[in-house]
């Protein structure tokens, strides 16, 4: 099994290096010709994220996934999601707004959480009419990261448990601190009228 993991990890690594070469060539062309190819770069990064996510899911199934917890600045995290998603959503006339009231660092796995938020914003964008909002708040030792939209909301609650959701829930619970585990809640209680994704981390 370890050999399989090595082969997969090596393949993902090489593919991401190739994708980076492709993205740098696009960036060079954009600069040389004064054009914007943001959607092409978005597709490249989405492909890389998919590869990473696949590897993470495989780790979860093997029960050897671990969260790499480091103190991360929450507003930086929100800025990165904004940078990754805003232009793409704008091409479909959806506005992404960010409301982050957390100034401090929070111990979390930056890459896993950023990917989960990117994924949640992508999902919200698929159903939203015109707006998606990402917000961050703290209460009583918990960090809440919330993605809301103004779409029709989930048809059934709890929603059908797909692989993506299973992965997200298990990644949330990998965040532990003083016997408290992170969790994921999906509801239709969005302030914007649609679905609401809430990730709570201790």
């Amino acid at each position: 099994m370890q050999r399989l993991l090595d082969i997969l990890a090596s393949g993902v690594h090489d593919a991401k290096n190739q994708l980076f070469i492709a993205e740098s060539m696009i960036a060079a062309s954009e600069a040389a010709h004064g054009i914007s190819m943001g959607e092409a770069r978005y597709a490249i990064e989405a492909a890389a994220n998919r590869l990473s996510r696949t590897l993470t899911a495989y780790h979860l199934l093997r029960d050897d996934a671990t969260a790499a917890i480091t103190p991360s600045i929450v507003s930086d995290l929100c800025d990165e999601v904004m940078l990754a998603q805003k232009k793409h959503l704008a091409t479909r006339s959806i506005t992404l707004s960010v409301a982050c009231s957390v100034l401090d660092e929070w111990p979390l796995d930056r890459d896993l959480i950023t990917d989960m938020l990117n994924n949640a914003v992508q999902n919200a964008g698929r159903y939203a009419r015109q707006s998606v909002r990402l917000s961050a708040t703290t209460d009583d030792g918990w960090l809440s990261l919330i993605v809301e939209d103004d779409g029709p909301g989930f048809a059934t609650l709890p929603p059908d448990c797909g692989t993506g959701l299973m992965v997200a829930e298990r990644l949330a619970s990998l965040h532990t601190r003083r016997e408290r585990h992170g969790s994921l809640t999906l509801t239709n209680d969005s302030a914007l009228g649609g679905a609401r994704f809430e990730l709570r981390l201790p």
């Binding site: 991401k16 994708l19 980076f20 492709a22 993205e23 890389a48 890459d111």
Partner: peptide, 8 residues
Amino acid sequence: IKPFSPDK
């Protein structure tokens, strides 16, 4: 982490 954009 690769790939990343100049903006990032």
